[in-house]
Nucleic acid binder design. Structure first.
Lengths: 261, 261
DNA sequence: GTGTGTCGGTTCATTATGTGAACCATTGGT
DNA sequence: ACCAATGGTTCACATAATGAACCGACACAC
């Protein structure tokens, strides 16, 4: 792996639960040498990608990332464009809608919208990581990813949540076939108890799968009627976001969605 | 310079006017070898920091920067915290208020707020770069930056705008003294014609200057009365944002601001 | 006080990694 | 058919990354 990759890997240790970390801690978490970490962090600090804070000299993400994000949204307004669709999807279904993005082999929450209809709702957070093995979004993405990518992802370590749900790689592979034939993915009480997730894939201009649009419903209030309504709204919204993003939906999937709506 | 620094420098070529660029163009703009650029870009693409788009294979900022920005704002909500103050400053003065951040020796717009009072207003954009030599924000930052930093910045090339305004390094150095003695910076029709800017510095928890809060007023409607109102509101808002951010304002500056308000 | 464990940061011999001129294969214009 | 771009690749070479050992500072235990 190149030096730049190592440096960028250091950024992944920052999460919502661990917003900052000391030098030794970072070295321990990444398995890199302390001196190496120090050099890489110093170099990133000079560009504002990370910054040191307080007398403990802990590192955290720096202000430069904000600037880059503004420029990205100005150049390609994925979030701004999708937000209205996401909100109308949440309103139409009465449940939580969310959008996830595939970046570097990991599925991240890009945006979400709640419905005001029910007091009990599935809650989310921006930048959360979604496990492939146990979410509808993950299944939707896997189903339309090239075989080699799927292999690479499934050969990785199974996250704790997937193991506890007794989902093996074979289970996931079997599910992929169903998902592809149906045009959307569904999971029941796997990612979280009492959450029913349904998702459709999103594509880029070259027809490569780059993420998923999903509805996360509170399982106790699911009915056959609500289920069909969600499928209809989800496929419609999926087609809409793909159109807004300039995504190229495979023709067979397009017809599946047309029949679902 | 290290490899990581070179890689991150490549990101700086993306601006609002040039949201994407081809490989050869990037190599030309950065002065790096084409093969080097390609390797660095490929490595950054693997982490989603940049992405390639369309049949031209041009590069642009990738989706990973959004995730990093969410995590940054979640960890240290600079923008969210400052936004209300910025809006009330714009409302109280009837002019445009904006906030800039010093990152990697460059002053970037972090946020801004317009007043609805007048149809003619000074307009801004997120992530814009402010020249030190010809803005109130730049002067405010220079006035409270360590001498060595000031030297480093002023020894750099003068931007075209500063030259056209006939402002030399000596001019700027002289101005710094006045700014420091007064507690706030002011420029008249320098950054843009018919724009009067006034700014106060912002500090981090260690008392280091990290940015500026400014009001950009339409010069034609400036009156002595408005001028004193802006100074009062600006210093009050400056103290407030420094408090919100946990910034340590130098004691002598605190007293200057108290007398101005 | 004196050990013992951290911490952030630095040094420097070793070597892995990055470098870049020259090279393809394509594309688009003349 | 030619030329001048483009994005991307190769490989001998040299620069830049590496990491065990080190430092001084701090905090806690005894």
């Amino acid at each position: 792996m190149g030096t730049v990759g190592k440096a960028l890997d250091l950024l992944d240790i920052f999460t919502r639960l661990r917003p900052q970390a000391g030098l030794s801690e970072i070295a321990r978490l990444t398995g890199q040498n302390k001196a190496t970490c120090h050099r890489l962090l110093t170099e990133m600090e000079a560009r504002g990608l990370v910054e040191q804070v307080g007398p403990t000299r802990e590192y955290r993400l720096g202000p430069a990332v904000l600037r880059l994000a503004y420029l990205r949204e100005a150049a390609v307004p994925t979030r701004d464009a999708a937000m209205p669709v996401l909100q109308s999807l949440a309103r139409a279904t009465g449940e939580t809608a969310h959008l996830s993005h595939l970046v570097g082999g990991v599925l991240h929450t890009l945006a979400f919208a709640y419905s005001v209809q029910h007091g009990v709702k599935v809650t989310m957070d921006d930048a959360d990581i979604l496990p492939f093995h146990a979410t509808a979004s993950g299944a939707a993405v896997l189903a339309w990813l090239p075989e080699v990518e799927v292999d690479r992802i499934l050969s990785g370590p199974l996250p704790a949540r997937a193991r506890s749900a007794n989902r093996t790689v074979a289970d996931v592979r079997a599910a992929i076939g169903h998902v592809r034939a149906r045009g959307w993915a569904e999971t029941l009480s796997t990612f979280e108890r009492d959450v029913q997730g349904m998702a459709v894939p999103l594509f880029d201009a070259q027809g490569a799968c780059i993420g998923a649009l999903a509805v996360a419903a509170a399982a106790p209030r699911m009915t056959p009627d609500l289920h069909t309504r969600i499928v209809a709204e989800l496929t419609r919204a999926g087609a809409e976001i793909n159109a807004l993003w300039g995504g190229q939906v495979p023709p067979d999937l397009q017809t599946l969605w047309r029949h679902a709506a």
